[in-house]
Design a protein around this nucleic acid. Structure first.
Lengths: 343, 343
DNA sequence: TTGAAAGCGCTAACAA
DNA sequence: TTGTTAGCGCTTTCAA
């Protein structure tokens, strides 16, 4: 092994193999055009030196980094773990690397990460879950970096995206609870402010209540922002205002956990007295006690498709299906059951 | 805004500002050496074109990418979310970007990611949790990429690392259970094969049992590999073989959850009949029902320090503290309590 | 204080 | 089939 401190260049390989640098370049890019004998020598030299072509030099020529950027709001939310997984698998398949940045839903960080992506010349960006503010949009097009959205979309701009039908999914969850016999149903939603899935999930809930003639339930909604603790607090408010509820639809599994925790601290049984359904079906949903009934999002596929769609955009310049909707599914586990019949 | 499709280069900026490219370069790297008037014009041109210097060109010159690579075994394990967060914050602070790769504990993927890092010219690599196999080590030194380990270390090689004292932490967990009055104690550990923290945590358990004269408990150990389901199964085996146990130490929070789930399916109360303590204290530990008593690892700091240590290695060529140990702490919550006194 | 020019490692066009 | 060379976008001498 070469113990030299600096990395070998194409020139070192050429010297060692006794050929010109073009020949080395050819064995890497068009092996067929090099005579067997020399090719072997070059390959041997590459092996011996642990040579890897320098991506800077290549990038300068190809004007491509073969790197994609991912902007996510909160890496500690389990939801994104599955998404990253799907995205990285797609990237591997397509020959890309992935650069992940955690914005903490902070505008300043977001902007500075976009700058970093710009400087690092990422070929494209996947923008996850967040709202596409004009600042972001202007910045992105100003940088001339193609991008797609995942688990989100934009009404103002025409941006390719892959997501789930939040309205329909929320409707399904609420309708399921109604079909179970529940009549006093509450909901814990996302604060609408800056939330992309908050409003449609709320709408789905409202539509279900309306269609089933339970419009009074529309008043039983509290909002929380992302975290367990906030959901716990929201559940407290919800049950303080509406102690009669026998079911609650939560727009995230973490909210369902917060709600169940609250209920348990109040010695209210789930699902014995109150049914709870979550949303996402991330890994923890099946590990919780009780196991969560929830809306399953195809999280892995969302990530996978988003990367593929971005790749499509990069290679063809456009996208066949601008707004792709993946299927959700209700998963019934332990946190919900038929309303206890009054005697 | 420039609607041109290609990204502007330093030449475009120079033209627009009516100066040479060297001057543009200077306003970016040594602003003081450029006369106020021109500097303003250059700055204006940069702004107007949304110009960002090309990292490829810079990298070629500086031989630095200002990018660090992170190799983790399993992104869906909550443990790593906190670590990534800490690492990324450190990277931001130090002016680096972070490239995260999920190896799935697969040797082939590991090797191919190292190749990718090599090609992309990452300045250094953080190697998380996994065992440093000779193949990896040879590869890494062959690539001449500096690296550190986090939540892991190597006995064979001399590699800077930051971790927790697993043996002592496990001892503390086991001793805590003993001090609570438990005498029949079991453990669910990591399969030792290829596990870095498995053996020391087992040793810590054994030492506690030995010091307290409870050596018979050393037989009450089952092993599982990483996932909830495996831990559930291991708990099944443990309690089938040793139904008399009143406490179990689990080497991961996810194992504790699997164990509690199993116990609950068997209608055994936690902590009423059996106390369970976990390890990690990741976010979910405080959300579970019951909330987990666990060993808290400074996960964020582990990630943060690892990045700092790598940076130290990159800039100074060596590291002051080759093997850094961060403090763990026992967090008592709801999943453990004093042994029920026999009447 | 500024500009011209060399060169970082590679690819691709051109010549041989 | 192979080698020579220009040039990708930038920084950094060296001269002016």
């Amino acid at each position: 092994m070469n113990k030299n401190k600096t990395k070998p260049t194409i020139r070192d390989v050429a010297n060692k193999a006794g050929v010109s640098i073009s020949t080395v370049s050819r064995v890497m890019n068009a092996p067929a055009s090099v005579v067997e004998n020399k090719r072997q020598r070059v390959l041997a030299a590459i092996e011996e030196l642990s040579y890897q072509p320098n991506a800077f030099a290549r990038g300068l020529i190809y004007k491509k980094s073969f790197t994609l950027g991912l902007l996510i709001p909160d890496i500690e939310n389990m939801y994104y773990a599955g998404m990253i997984r799907g995205m990285q698998d797609a990237c591997n398949k397509l020959g890309y690397s992935l650069m992940i940045c955690n914005t903490d839903r902070d505008k300043e960080r977001m902007i500075s990460y976009i700058d970093a992506f710009h400087e690092k010349q990422v070929d494209g960006i996947v923008f996850a879950s967040d709202k596409m503010f004009p600042e972001y949009y202007e910045k992105l097009v100003g940088c001339r970096i193609p991008f797609v959205m995942v688990s989100s979309h934009s009404d103002e701009y025409d941006i390719p995206c892959v997501e789930v039908d939040d309205e329909a999914a929320a409707y399904d969850a609420a309708a399921y609870l109604i079909e179970l016999g529940h009549r006093q149903i509450g909901m814990i939603g996302f604060n609408h402010e800056n939330s992309i899935s908050g409003p449609p999930r709320y709408e789905g809930f409202v539509r279900a209540m309306t269609e089933y003639g339970l419009t009074s339930n529309i008043a039983n909604v509290k909002f929380a922002s992302h975290y367990f603790e906030h959901a716990y607090q929201a559940a407290h408010e919800l049950f303080t205002d509406h102690p009669q509820l026998t079911a609650v639809f939560c727009v995230a599994d973490e909210f369902a956990m917060g709600t169940i925790s609250y209920l348990r601290d109040r010695h209210i049984l789930v699902p014995g007295q109150v049914s709870v359904v979550g949303f996402d079906n991330h890994r923890m949903a099946g590990m919780y006690i009780p196991k969560l009934t929830t809306i399953s999002q195809p999280i892995y596929d969302l990530g996978h498709r988003a990367a593929e769609k971005l790749h499509e955009l990069l290679t063809t310049g456009s996208v066949m299906v601008p707004r792709e909707v993946l299927q959700h599914k209700l998963i019934v586990r332990e946190s919900s059951r038929e309303r206890a019949t009054t005697i």
